[in-house]
Design a protein around this nucleic acid. Structure first.
Lengths: 164, 164
DNA sequence: GCGAGATATTTTAGGCCTAAAGCATCTGGA
DNA sequence: TCCAGATGCTTTAGGCCTAAAATATCTCGC
C-alpha cells in the first residue's frame, strides 16, 4: 500500500537505460505531477493556469503590455496569446486598447476585476506550491535550485550547438 | 547578445518572491524548454511526443497492454489514450485486438512497422537528451537526479496531506 | 440466477497550444 | 515619394489533453 504514494515515471524501465534519459524522465515526472496538481486546483476554482499566467505577467505593469511582449514573457505563440487575451477581455479581467504609437499594436491592461481575481489566485497558488515542497528542508531546496541552474546552463549550451 | 541564450523564467520578478515559487518556476522553465525542443524535433520528423510515449510503453511488451494499463502508464486520461491509439492503429503502428478474457477490454500491440518507427525515434530521442545535458558533468547530473528524488518524495507527501 | 454496483472503454464538449498563412501597418533606403 | 521587407497581430487547421456522460460488460452477494 505504500506504493500508492510513489510517483510513477513514464516508461519506467523502458528507455531509461541511459542516465541522461533517466534524469529527463524524472524531471518530467516531477514537473508534470506538480503542474497537473496545480491545474486541477485552478479548475476547481473555475480558473486555468494559462489565464493565471497572463494575469501574472500583467500584474504590476500598470502601463500594460502589447501582445508580442506577452507572448515573449509567457513563452507561448502569438496566436495563443490572442486567444487567451480575447477571452480574458470578454470576461472583463483585462482591457485591450489600441496603441497610440503603432496602429498594428494593442495594449493589454488588467482591470480592477482582473487584479482582484489574480490576487486571490496568486495567494492560493503559492500556498499549493509551498505544500508540495514542504517535505524538503531549506538546504535541499537550495541544492535543487542550484542543480537546476546547472541544467539551465547546459540546455542553453546544447541548444546553441545544434542550430535552430 | 549573450542574453540571447539565457533561458527565461516565466513571470520572472513577479510572484517569485517566495522561494518555493522561484524553485517551481525554474523547474517548470527547464522542463518546458527541453520538452518544446523535443516536440519540435519530433515534429520535424512527422512524429509527436505523445505518440512516441505510447510506442515506448508498448515496446518490449510483446503480449500487449489494454487501454487502461496504457492510460496509467502514460499518466493521461482514458479518452486521450483512445484517441492516440486509434490514430496509431489507422497508421498501422499498433494493432487493437479484443481481449479474450473480457469483452469490454481491448489489447493493443505494436506492429513490426511500429517497432521500426519507434526504434528510429528512440535513438534520436536519447541523442537529443544527451546533447541537452552534455554541459553537466557526471557529478552534477547525479546531484540533480538525487535532488529531484527529494522533490518527488516531498510531492508525494504534500499530495497525501491535502486530500484528493 | 439476478440485479446493483464496479470496471473498461468511448464519446462529447471544451480548453491549451502550435505552425503557417494572411492582413494591416510601419520603416528605411533608393 | 514610394515600395520592399519587417513587424504586430489574427486566423486557420490540427494535435494534445481533460472531465463528465454514455455504453457495454463483468462480478459478487443475495
Amino acid at each position: 500500500m505504500k506504493e500508492a504514494l510513489a510517483i510513477r515515471e513514464k516508461h519506467d524501465g523502458a528507455l531509461a537505460d541511459r542516465s541522461s534519459v533517466r534524469l529527463w524522465l524524472r524531471l518530467l515526472s516531477c514537473t508534470m505531477t506538480i503542474e497537473k496538481d496545480v491545474q486541477r486546483r485552478f479548475s476547481e476554482r473555475g480558473a486555468t493556469l494559462a489565464r493565471f499566467d497572463v494575469l501574472a505577467a500583467l500584474d504590476r505593469r500598470e502601463q500594460g503590455m502589447n501582445m508580442g511582449a506577452l507572448s515573449r514573457a509567457l513563452l507561448v505563440s502569438n496566436g495563443n496569446v490572442t486567444q487567451l487575451v480575447q477571452k480574458l477581455a470578454r470576461d472583463g479581467l483585462v482591457r485591450i486598447a489600441p496603441s497610440p504609437a503603432d496602429r498594428r499594436a494593442s495594449i493589454v491592461r488588467m482591470t480592477a476585476k482582473g487584479r482582484a481575481e489574480f490576487g486571490g489566485l496568486a495567494a492560493a497558488h503559492h500556498d499549493w506550491i509551498d505544500a508540495l515542497v514542504a517535505g524538503m528542508d531549506a538546504g535541499a531546496r537550495e541544492n535543487l535550485y542550484q542543480a537546476l541552474g546547472d541544467l539551465k546552463r547546459s540546455i542553453a549550451k546544447g541548444q546553441a550547438n545544434s542550430g535552430s
